[in-house]
């Protein structure tokens, strides 16, 4: 099916009737996902958003429960099941949702806060047309033209968007948009990344054997421990849990944390298993490229290039991969 680009606003209006629709936009000069305001034109092309849409399913601060202190304690869980649509999310960020699904929905426990949002979100993905010079998703095993876990996959068809439903949720979307859609459409699906990285299938296993390799001294030296890389990364999911008290009441919340901070693993008695940036950067690279693969069978780096683009110290995971592949 295809949708005329001139009908995009009309389509978004239909979707926004019973859900919050998030679209690529800009706030204070930063390209990121924004709540659609009901009228603005949406540009699905150009470079990917500078910030990933990860906060829509995993907010950077999320309230968990309220409590009352005093002689008898009361605890009241906060339950939110917002109906949300992420419109125009790219294949790399779609793969990051796949990573999050593994973490939050599998292995013994289901994370209720994530699963409630995940169940109620509709993911309408957009094939990439304009990779940046730091994009390397196809080296990480992705196809920039397709997101297999999307509800609806859109691709550019010139004057139209070519739509295909992959799930029941996706079919419902196409039905809702039926009045604006027509048969046919020729989708362009020939986007390829310009940056190629030597991510071999053997690398996760090889890295596991390189824990004590001298490479770590060299590749970790520049890092200043600012955590920008983890903040802009669509797959980084570490969080802290803390409380916010107001008199005898309060709220327990969780918020994004970063393994790049120096006190991240420091214990109450003072012992720290990762005392210097060498151990911390090693843990980050290993987690992205080896540990996660061992645990969940896929890479925790989707090749979006955001950390490469934003690191103030020019740390570059693609250069690390190439170097590690060569030793």
């Amino acid at each position: 099916m295809q949708l005329k680009k001139t009908d995009l606003t009309g389509a978004l209006k239909i979707l926004a009737a019973d859900a919050s629709v998030f679209v690529p936009g800009e706030i204070e000069g930063i390209k990121r996902f924004v709540l659609w305001d009901g009228e603005s034109d949406v540009d699905l092309g150009g470079a990917n958003t500078q910030l990933p849409p990860k906060d829509i399913l995993f907010p950077c601060t999320e309230k968990m429960y309220n409590y009352k202190m005093g002689d008898s304690i009361e605890i009241k869980e906060i339950v939110e099941k917002p109906r949300q649509v992420i419109f125009g999310i790219r294949p790399c960020d779609m793969r990051s949702i796949d990573c999050m699904d593994h973490v939050f929905l599998e292995k013994g426990f289901v994370d209720s806060y994530y699963s409630r949002k995940r169940e109620n979100v509709t993911l309408i993905a957009m094939g990439c047309t304009t990779p940046e010079r730091t994009c390397f998703c196809d080296s990480m095993g992705l196809d920039p033209n397709n997101a297999p876990n999307a509800d609806v996959m859109m691709n550019d068809g010139g004057d139209t968007l070519v739509l295909e439903a992959y799930t029941e949720k996706g079919k419902a979307v196409l039905e809702a948009l039926n009045g604006l859609l027509s048969e046919g459409g020729q989708a362009k699906k020939d986007t390829a990344c310009t940056l190629k990285v030597n991510m071999t299938p053997e690398l996760p296993e090889k890295l596991a054997g390189m824990f004590d390799h001298p490479i770590w001294d060299e590749v970790t030296r520049a890092c200043i421990g600012c955590a920008t890389c983890t903040y802009v990364c669509p797959t980084c999911y570490c969080f802290d849990i803390d409380s916010d008290n107001h008199g005898a009441e309060g709220t327990k919340f969780r918020c994004w944390d970063s393994c790049m901070f120096s006190d991240y693993t420091r214990m109450a008695g003072g012992h720290d298993p990762r005392p210097t940036k060498k151990e911390r950067v090693r843990n980050r690279y290993m987690h992205k490229l080896s540990y996660f693969h061992e645990r969940y069978g896929q890479h925790l780096c989707v090749g979006c290039g955001r950390c490469v683009e934003k690191c103030p110290a020019h740390m570059d995971i693609t250069m690390f991969i190439d170097k590690a592949a060569e030793v």
């Binding site: 013994g108 426990f109 969080f239 944390d257 061992e294």
Partner: peptide, 24 residues
């Protein structure tokens, strides 16, 4: 083993040693 922990359910990433979470 002892590690610093936050979630206790293998989600928050705090307590990993390699691919293992000490809490889980």
């Amino acid at each position: 083993l002892e590690m610093r922990m936050k979630c206790g359910i293998g989600k928050c990433g705090r307590c990993n040693i390699g691919s293992k979470y000490v809490c889980l």
